[in-house]
Design a protein around this nucleic acid. Sequence first.
RNA 1: GGGGCUGUGGCGCAGUUGGUAGCGCGGCGAGCUUACACCUCGUAGGUCGUCGGUUCGAGUCCGGCCAGCCCCACCA
Length: 900
Amino acid sequence: MSGDLCPDPRGTPRDAGVATVGRAVELFAVTQPTTQTPSGDAVDLPTRYQPADVEGRLYERWVSEGRFTADPARNPGRPAYSIVIPPPNVTGSLHMGHALDHSIQDTLVRRRRMQGHEVAWIPGMDHAGIATQNVVERELAKEGLSRHDLGREAFVDRVWKWKAESGGRILGQMRRLGDSVDWSREAFTMDDDRARAVRTIFKRLFDDGLIYRAERIINWCPRCLTALSDIEVEHADRDGELVSIRYGDGDDSIVVATTRAETMLGDTAVAVHPDDERYKHLVGRDIELPLTGRRIPVVADEHVDPAFGTGAVKVTPAHDPNDFEIGRRHDLPSLSVMDERGVITEPGPFQGLDRFEARPAVVAALREDGRIVREIRPYEHSVGHCQRCRTVVEPRVSLQWFVKVAPLAKAAGDAVRDGRVAIHPPEMAARYFEWVDNMHDWCVSRQLWWGHRIPVWYGPDGETACPGPDEEPPAGWTQDTDVLDTWFSSALWPFSTLGWPADTPELQRFYPTSALVTGYDILFFWVARMMMFGLYAMDGAVPFRTIVLHGMVRDQHGKKMSKSFGNVVDPLDWIERYGADATRFTLLRGANPGGDVPVAEEWAQGSRNFCNKLFNVARFALINGANVSGPVPAELTTVDRWVLSRLNTVIAEVDAHLDDYEFAKACETLYHFAWDEVCDWYVELAKVQLADDRAPATRRVLGEVLDKVLRLLHPVIPFVTEELWTTLTGADTLVTAAWPAADPERRDAAAEAEIESLQRLVTEVRRFRADQGLKPGQRVAAELDWAGSPLAAHEEGVRTLLRLTVPGDGFAATASLPVEGATVRLDTAGAIDVGAERRRLEKDLATARKEADQTRRKLGNEAFVAKAPEAVVAKNKDRLAQAEADIARLEHQLAALPAG
RNA sequence: GGGGCUGUGGCGCAGUUGGUAGCGCGGCGAGCUUACACCUCGUAGGUCGUCGGUUCGAGUCCGGCCAGCCCCACCA
């Protein structure tokens, strides 16, 4: 082994080169032992990339060297790029959805870092009100305690303790994934700075009259014992019964239908449509409500659909949102018949029954009089469930805090409408508008203990005060006991993480953030709310310039991942078995804009294989002394010019794809270039050049190609690329190395055409050899007749690729393949299967003739020639010419076949 | 009830301003060749859900239908 095994990239003296070799050996030596020894020179290096050996080490180094730390004061002239991470719940752990979301963000920020931007990617977590409280309550339950046994203060302490001990497991998992976040700026939605932001904006909203307290009917979870906002309620179809009940008696009777018979105990009216002739005589009269003895009025209300059911509806203002509104319009009393746990409180036979026990009980009681229940039929209807615990939500009248969203939502919609915020993919904007344009006031109070306590105090006579964060509440007043919806504090995330309300350098430099990356599933929950609060708090400045929406990760059949299906894939499992890079690559390769991302074990293996492929080209490059520094020589072979031309095309394509958030396309482009073109063609052709005096230039080109490919791949697969690139170049890190710029001067159409032609020739001969059963390794004597063809310059390469020897004495051509303006005559020792070859050629000939006919007919179509663009016509002419050439070639080959 | 999406080789997906279909995985066959069997080479396999329309020409535009999915929703 000589010193030029791996020349020093900077051309400094030999010992530096030796050091690089030492590194290389170390890199390859930590992997498992070689399974086989290449023939010839004993280069005893292992052949597989072992991610586990490098990932942890590299990540720790990146962090300790501060590679991800943002500095708002650094390079003021340079553009800033910032992203705030969608804060995962403290209770959460990394799942594939996070892995996808984070891989996208990491790709974006790593590329910007390489482009010289000042990058801030802010990590953090969400306190996740209900979810976290439930976790800790469950823990307490194991000790036989409830939160009430501890009392509020002790319980909240307990939650903090839990958070310190087992919360935030996901942060460690983010390191495994390789997230290049700025850990020095980690935030938590409940920490002091964020609490200050909450207090500040609450007060502003309060003072502006955009937050108010009112008695309303809200969604109530009888298990969590708290109010829920509309979007925390999930609707699902359930089988139920539609029971028709006669109210009143004789001429004064009316039949109503309900799926919730038990609520009739709280009915305070029956409503009909004002124009409904059937019931006009009853409007304004009282009728008797069965079971209760109460008499309730019949009212006329536009809301009632006369065509539905009997056209009459029972009105229970306390337990149904519609009825609540009807009740308000007609000034009806609101009679609550259940407590906060959904247990009937109305005195009588049903008192103490759960709402679901009361339902059949009420129906049974009604049936005792055979004339009251007119019909019972199965009925499927939509029922709201608590998003957190799946309990059926109970509409309930209570005193809650609301944010008046109309003005805020208007601004949030306008920011997208007028283009200040772009949504990718743009189709998703429709969903966004539909939501912001139809949003109800947002119920922000929760009857929980874990969360930001509502900063409102009440005086002895019911006065209210909302002191700012630096103000004291009046002495002796008591604070509201409710806390704010979790989404209230996360809506402030893009600016609260940057120090708002203080006017920090971070805020100056990094707000508005550059992109917000998240799944389309929380467009409503979170994104729209950040828009509302961002615009409001930051005086009209948008919270982010671009919203990048991705889909959900699914299994290989497009099924949602869920425990019950048993198809959940744990990203950490993949990271351990295939590496973080392979995990990331699999996800990004499937990340078409807005589309769901199916993943499967095989895809991950494919990605792992790709990383290994890169490892091996790098190994090849090291063994052959690839050179990554200095100018690329002016004198280059067609092969070299071709690969550089392709490289620069690829750089431009990848750049464009990443600009468009087309991660799948960027990955595909690089995958194919690196594997199909660089490994399968360039390296094979380069082997020939490396054996002669073209070696120095070839080493430089090989180094150049690898250098650029690794840079381009680094944002997507940071670990392998860092490891290989630093080994190849001897430089410190790829993290801040320059992002490649495409050089249009390198584009070389002639070289590309020539190599494509060469590829076709080689493929054709390989095909022939395979069809004829000639072993790929078997050397075959061949005569190449290609006078005048530019391919003649590649004779050595062709002979190597095809394992063709120069014919000696006694050469007898038994196969003649005219292709690409050349003729290859092979000595197949008389072993060729003439019949098979003839069948094959005839089939191809038929195909070519058919194509020629079709194209000829098309070109004969006057309308086509007149109307189609010139380029299209020209393309068809080329096609015809090609087909005709194929026909001639195939006929020639057929004629040249030996008889029999 | 409203809104949106999807339907392309066995499976999962690409297909830019309309010009006769690509990729990965899988299948089949061959093979240790100057890095890689987590490899190489060769190969089979779709007329683009369906009907109709516009056009010289449609997977690519328009309409109907069929199938599947998602989101939003205060019709009992």
